[in-house]
Amino acid sequence: MPALEDYKGRPPAWCPGCGNFPILSAFANAMADLGLGPHQFTIVSGIGQAGKFPHYLKCNTFNGLHGRTLPVATGIKLANHDMHVFAVAGDGDCYGEGGNHLLHAIRRNINVKLFVHDNQVYGLTKGQASPTSMEGMVTKNQPAGALSGQLNPMALAVALDCSFAARAFAGDGERLKELVKAAVGHKGFALIDILQPCVTFNKVNTYQWYKERVYHIEPGYNPEDRIEAFKRALEWGDRIPIGIIYKNYRTTLDEKIPAIRKQPLIKQAFDRSMVEATLKEFY
């Protein structure tokens, strides 16, 4: 069994008190609990504060471009579906720059787990509004306040029939760890939108602000009821639900592709002797 020490990476360059720290330890704890060694999973991350996440761990890492985590993760998973594949991105990265990929990853139901570190702001580029910034949030670049409406990732996920959609709060590491484990245990595309305080640039959605509002979804709630899930997804403001909002058991993309039904692509050696037979088809 891997120990927590085994996941130790480079020293984080985040601001002291940043909401990314508790996410990092919750994730490492979840991996240790699941017994997944550093070489048994791959984290694909984007660019932003969240994008640095895998460097502060020890694991297979593809730290790619801003907004493009999901296509890379999809490629890895299709090539090797024995590998656990996580995509880690910021709210700007995933809901802004890479928004189109999110829609299609949900549609494909690729068996990848996506964690969005949702600090409702662009951290790395110093505090501009993001797609999840609350309307009216004033920033240096939005002096009159964010003018566009706030994107609701949970409602989007339920609307698109996302296989697994959950919301977590970085300030509640224990619950976050359990949600990560649940996502890994779920077969299908999983989105966990993690409310992550940015202590430097988001002076609206602070630890305190979230703490006053988040509540755990009650045990009797049925996340397989899509209508109820949609109602729950719409809750924002005074009360913000934390937990699994929605799930279904759709067939995953890799299960549908004939070429990889029996074995991961990576295990299928190329048989050069077939070339000769194919050549004959051109006559």
């Binding site: 791959t42 790619g64 296509p71 490629g75 998973k77 990929h101």
Partner: peptide, 17 residues
């Protein structure tokens, strides 16, 4: 879904081996 995705998927698959 678009060419941006296409090349990034290809990079993922190639990275995977």
């Amino acid at each position: 879904e678009d060419e941006i995705s296409a090349i990034n998927m290809v990079l993922g698959a190639s990275f995977a081996g």
